[in-house]
């Protein structure tokens, strides 16, 4: 049985499609990433899975149950962490956790054990009397996650959980997600950070309300048919413009002080020598580069145009 099964889901707001014909399956126990820029429709899709939105077209099944029918069953199965911190800022860490435990109908014995577990991984125990509004960004994130996990859900749905969190907290957060996954929890996480895609078992790339690619990160990166090179030089902007005009170049992309250029055909050494001369010495170094998720994503959106 698929944990989440989405078939031809469409959702429109005032006639504008936010999600357009998405079909997606999430397997039991996997850490699935929904990757895409802001406005791709990730939040709409996740909210629909959590029974917060009804579809205009299509169907969503969670553990075989329809999200428009078995609403209460699904809410007990799913733990949802919204993008924005949305707990009671004026209640303490512990009060928030206990309140949501009560709402999910967690029995007293189970609740105490669960609280200990959650405090252990989140390391929030020393702060349990502190008001949620006075926590740091990373701690808020962990409290939010703990609240979503309080009823030990089968499925954890996270909407851009690491948005605006510092790199160290992000890394720690992903380690926590991995440990939750080991407890046989299926995790569906959305993110706009392409580098986080490599941390997922499988990912779906989403762009303008549609899924453009689904697969393991390795598979997706292997699907990149072009020859990617990383170029360094004096003036990277000049380099990009120079290569963009060449007929054998598929796409160019600025990456900090380097330029990623993908070629339809692998260039020969003589080609490089010619380009070095033609670019008036701007091209200093070049090296073959394994494609990153970002390269693949950019390439897949390129096709759209």
């Amino acid at each position: 049985m698929k944990v989440i099964e989405i078939t031809d889901y469409c959702k429109r707001y005032d006639g504008v499609a936010a999600v357009e014909g998405v079909t997606l399956k999430v397997e039991y126990g996997e850490l699935f990433g929904l990757i895409g820029p802001d406005g791709a429709g990730k939040t709409t899709l996740l909210r629909a899975i959590c029974t917060l939105l009804t579809p205009d077209e299509g169907k969503i099944l969670v553990m075989g149950k329809d999200v428009t029918q078995s609403i209460m069953d699904i809410r007990s199965l799913v733990g949802y962490m919204p993008q924005r911190f949305s707990l009671y800022q004026d209640l303490s860490v512990e009060q928030n956790l206990r309140f949501f435990a009560d709402l999910f109908g967690v029995t007293e014995g189970k609740r105490e054990r669960r609280l200990l577990q959650l405090f252990e991984f989140s390391r929030l125990a020393p702060f349990k009397k502190r008001k949620a509004g006075e926590l740091s960004g990373g701690m808020k994130q962990k409290l939010s996650l703990s609240c979503a996990l309080i009823h030990t859900p089968e499925i954890l749905v996270l909407d851009e959980p690491t948005y605006g969190v510092d790199p160290i907290s992000r890394q720690e957060f992903w380690e926590i997600l991995r440990s939750i996954q080991k407890e046989k929890t299926t995790i569906l996480v959305s993110t706009a950070y392409m580098d986080e895609a490599d941390l997922c078992d499988r990912v779906a790339l989403m762009h303008q309300g549609k899924i453009t690619m689904v697969g393991t990160p390795e598979k997706i990166k292997a699907s990149f048919h072009y020859h990617l090179y990383r170029l360094e030089g004096k003036d990277v902007r000049f380099l990009r413009d120079f290569f963009q005009k060449l007929p054998s170049v598929r796409s160019t992309q600025l990456f900090g002080d380097t330029v990623h250029v993908s070629f339809c055909k692998k260039p020969a050494l003589s080609d490089w020598k010619n380009w070095q001369r033609d670019s008036r010495g701007n091209l200093k170094r070049w090296a073959s580069q394994p494609p990153s998720m970002e390269d693949v994503f950019m390439e897949s959106t390129e096709k759209e145009r």
Binding site: C50, T51, L52, M72, R75, S76, V78, Y80, P82, R84, F85, S86, L87, Y88, Q89, F100, L103, F104, G105, C147
Partner: peptide, 14 residues
């Protein structure tokens, strides 16, 4: 406004 309504609506609270 704070967004807690969304968090409440994913619980089995009617």
């Amino acid at each position: 406004e704070i967004g807690t309504l969304e968090q409440l609506m994913v619980t089995p609270l009617t």
